[in-house]
Computed example of a mutant assay.
Amino acid sequence: MPHSDLLPSLLFKINENQLALEAAIMELTIWAEKRGASEVAGNVRGALVAIDRNEEFIKMTLAVMMTPD
C-alpha cells in the first residue's frame, strides 16, 4: 500500500482524537464551571469554538479523500 493511501486514514484517526480531546476538555470545563471558575470555563469554551467551526469541513474533506476513485 503506497503511503499516500494511508493519508486519509491517518487524518481520520487524528480527527477522532481531536474530537475525543474536545469532549474531555468540555467535561473538565463543566467541572471547573460548577466549582466557580466561570471565567476559565468561558475562555476554554471560546477556544473550543475553532474545533466546532472546522468540524464539518474536516468531515466532508475526509469523506471525499476516503471515497475510492
Rank of each mutant, 00 (worst) to 15 (best):
E22F: 14
W31H: 14
M26Y: 10
V49D: 10
M26C: 08
A23K: 14
V49F: 06
K34D: 10
W31G: 01
M26L: 15
K34L: 13
L19R: 13
A47E: 02
F12C: 10
V40D: 05
G36C: 13
N15Q: 10
Q18W: 03
A32Q: 07
A50P: 00
F12H: 14
N43Y: 08
A41E: 03
W31D: 09
F12N: 11
L11Q: 02
V49G: 01
E33W: 08
A37D: 12
G46I: 10
E22T: 14
K34I: 01
I25C: 10
I30P: 00
A23N: 12
G46K: 11
A50G: 00
R35V: 04
V40H: 04
A32P: 08
E39I: 15
M26G: 02
L28F: 12
L48K: 00
N17T: 07
R35A: 04
A24L: 14
E22N: 13
T29F: 03
K13I: 04
L28V: 00
L21Q: 14
E39D: 15
A50S: 07
E27M: 13
L19W: 09
G36H: 13
R35I: 08
E16H: 04
K13R: 15
V40I: 15
L19I: 09
E22P: 00
E16K: 03
N17R: 07
L48F: 05
I30H: 11
I30M: 05
A50C: 03
N43C: 05
M26R: 13
E39V: 15
A50F: 03
N43E: 12
S38Y: 06
N43G: 15
F12S: 06
L11T: 01
F12G: 00
L19C: 05
A37G: 04
E16A: 01
A50D: 05
A24M: 11
L28W: 08
A24S: 15
T29C: 12
A47Q: 08
A20H: 12
L28N: 11
A47Y: 05
A41V: 09
E33Y: 07
G46C: 07
K13L: 09
A50R: 06
I14N: 03
L28H: 12
N43H: 10
A37F: 15
M26K: 09
A47K: 05
V44D: 01
L48S: 00
A37N: 13
V44T: 10
G42S: 03
I14T: 08
L11V: 00
L28Q: 11
E27A: 14
S38M: 10
A24T: 13
V40L: 15
V40N: 02
I14W: 08
W31M: 06
E27N: 12
A41H: 02
Q18E: 12
I14D: 03
E16V: 02
R35P: 08
G46S: 08
W31C: 01
V49H: 03
M26V: 09
R45Q: 09
T29G: 04
I30N: 07
L11W: 02
S38G: 11
N15F: 14
V49Y: 02
A47I: 09
A23E: 13
M26T: 12
V44I: 15
I14V: 13
A50Y: 03
I30Q: 14
M26A: 06
L19S: 08
G42Y: 04
G42K: 06
A32I: 04
N17A: 11
V49L: 01
S38H: 07
A41K: 05
